[in-house]
């Protein structure tokens, strides 16, 4: 009896071993996977959510060319106006280069307002994939812009007062495959006092989000709240809603906004009208970003 049970046990043991073997092999390999730190990719699909900066930077050696355009009508535009499609047009051409995976510098110039802008971005903290150790990404942003002419209600100041400065801490989290959110406390300093302001320093809060409709198309939105002012003659808080469409190396961004400028300082502070569909307020934006890789990654690091 004892012998029988022993034989039975050993046979069942062997059967067991044979039976679970395949899954065992995959389990052994699962345990062997080295836990290299992997950072979350594409919290946003480009350096910009739509018009405003995002936590994203490009990988080392990437050179980006940006062409942003906006089209809008004058507030007093008549139905029988002579202009084709839209009364006014502005374009910004910019370039951005990633000196490392963390650090990017960029500059650009816009046609309608003549504002020249430059910025630096540094990725301080990167959210991690497959773990909850680092739940958010944090990127520091410092931007400068320079007035070169008067436009709308902006009066060109003395040459020493033409600079504006923006400092931002952008904190973002990719909550899921589809949904990302960004919050960015912002400090602004303008050397000139425009639109009847009584101070040179401002605090603002930026909000941004994107939701993927598909693997290549997403809707995104941004809002900038400026503290300590009444919306009106001193400018309106800016709102953007739009669609991002990624086509290989090209990123197309379509938007509706009340901001006329492209640089951070003027966009946050000097929104010319409240966001609505009326002439003079609604600006239709079409932007294209092309990425060129000046540095190719090595496929075989061992060789």
């Amino acid at each position: 009896m004892k012998t029988n049970s022993s034989i039975f046990l050993s046979i069942s043991f062997i059967c067991c071993v044979q039976f679970v073997n395949g899954q065992d092999l995959l389990e052994i390999l699962d345990n062997e996977i080295n836990d290299t730190v992997r950072y979350t990719q594409a919290t946003f699909k480009s350096n910009r959510i739509i018009l405003g900066q995002s936590v994203e930077t490009r990988k080392k050696g990437s050179l980006e060319f940006l062409l942003g355009t906006k089209y809008w009508n004058r507030a007093d535009s008549e139905a029988d106006r002579g202009s084709f499609a839209a009364d006014l047009f502005t374009a910004r051409f910019g370039m951005e280069y990633a000196f490392s995976d963390r650090f990017t510098l960029g500059a650009g110039v816009a046609s309608f307002d003549g504002i020249i802008d430059g910025f630096g971005k540094y990725r301080l903290v990167r959210q991690r994939e497959y773990s909850n150790k680092v739940p958010v990404s944090i990127t520091l942003f410092q931007g400068t812009s320079f007035f070169t002419r008067s436009y709308s209600r902006i009066v060109l100041p003395e040459s020493s007062d033409r600079f504006n400065f923006v400092s931002k801490v952008m904190i973002a989290r990719k909550f899921s495959h589809d949904f990302s959110l960004q919050i960015s406390p912002t400090y602004l300093h303008t050397n000139s006092r425009q639109l009847g302001y009584e101070t040179n320093d401002y605090f603002a809060l930026g909000l941004g989000g994107r939701y993927k409709l598909g693997n290549h198309v997403s809707v995104a939105s941004e809002y900038n709240y400026v503290a300590g002012r009444n919306e009106g003659p001193q400018g309106y808080n800016t709102f953007v809603i739009g669609v991002n469409w990624e086509v290989s190396d090209l990123m197309l961004q379509f938007s509706a906004t009340n901001a006329v400028t492209f640089d951070e300082a003027a966009t946050i502070l000097f929104g010319p009208e409240n966001f609505n569909m009326k002439n003079g307020a609604l600006h239709i934006g079409v932007s294209a970003t092309y990425t060129l890789h000046l540095r190719k990654q090595k496929l075989n690091p061992n060789n």
Binding site: N21, G22, L25, L26, I28, L29, D30, E32, I33, T36, R38, Q41, A42, R58, K59, K60, G61, S62, E129, E246, S248, D249, T291, H293, K296, Q297, K298, L299, P301
Partner: peptide
């Protein structure tokens, strides 16, 4: 039996943007 297991994130492309896409 033979088993293979790999992380798709470990693929390296010449262009960083291709890898992301």
């Amino acid at each position: 039996e033979i088993a293979v297991n790999m992380l798709m994130r470990a693929f390296v492309f010449k262009k960083a943007l291709m890898e992301e896409h």
